[in-house]
Simulated scan of single mutants.
Amino acid sequence: MQITRTRSETRQGPAENFTGQVWLDEVAAPAAPSRLRVFSVHFAPGAHTAWHRHPHGQVLYVTEGEGLVQRKGGVAEVIRAGDTVWIEPGEWHWHGAGPRTFMTHLAVVEAAEDGTTAEWDAHVGPEDHPA
Rank of each mutant, 00 (worst) to 15 (best):
M1A: 15
I3C: 05
I3F: 10
R5E: 09
T6C: 03
R7G: 07
R7N: 05
R7Y: 07
R7I: 07
R11G: 02
Q12S: 09
G13N: 01
G13H: 01
P14R: 12
P14T: 05
P14Q: 09
P14I: 10
E16F: 14
E16T: 14
N17M: 12
F18Y: 10
Q21D: 12
Q21S: 14
V22D: 01
V22Y: 00
W23A: 02
L24S: 00
D25N: 03
D25M: 03
E26K: 13
A28H: 11
P30Q: 15
A31Q: 15
P33E: 04
P33H: 03
R35I: 07
L36S: 06
L36F: 10
R37A: 04
H42S: 07
F43Y: 02
P45W: 00
H48N: 11
H48G: 10
A50F: 13
W51T: 10
H52K: 07
R53N: 14
H56W: 03
H56V: 02
Q58H: 06
V59D: 09
L60Y: 06
L60F: 12
Y61V: 12
Y61A: 05
V62R: 08
E64I: 06
G67S: 04
Q70H: 13
R71A: 13
K72A: 15
G73K: 06
G73S: 04
G74E: 15
G74R: 15
V75Y: 00
V75R: 12
A76K: 08
E77A: 11
V78L: 08
V78S: 09
I79W: 10
R80W: 01
R80N: 04
A81G: 00
G82Y: 03
D83C: 06
V85M: 00
I87L: 14
I87H: 05
E88W: 03
E88S: 14
P89V: 02
G90P: 01
H93I: 12
W94T: 11
H95K: 09
H95F: 07
H95V: 06
A97W: 00
P99N: 07
R100H: 10
F102N: 13
T104G: 00
L106F: 09
A107S: 14
A107L: 06
V108M: 12
V109G: 04
E110P: 01
A111H: 01
E113R: 07
G115S: 08
G115K: 10
T116L: 11
A118P: 02
W120H: 08
D121N: 04
A122C: 08
V124N: 02
P126C: 02
E127A: 09
D128T: 10
P130D: 15
P130E: 15
A131V: 12
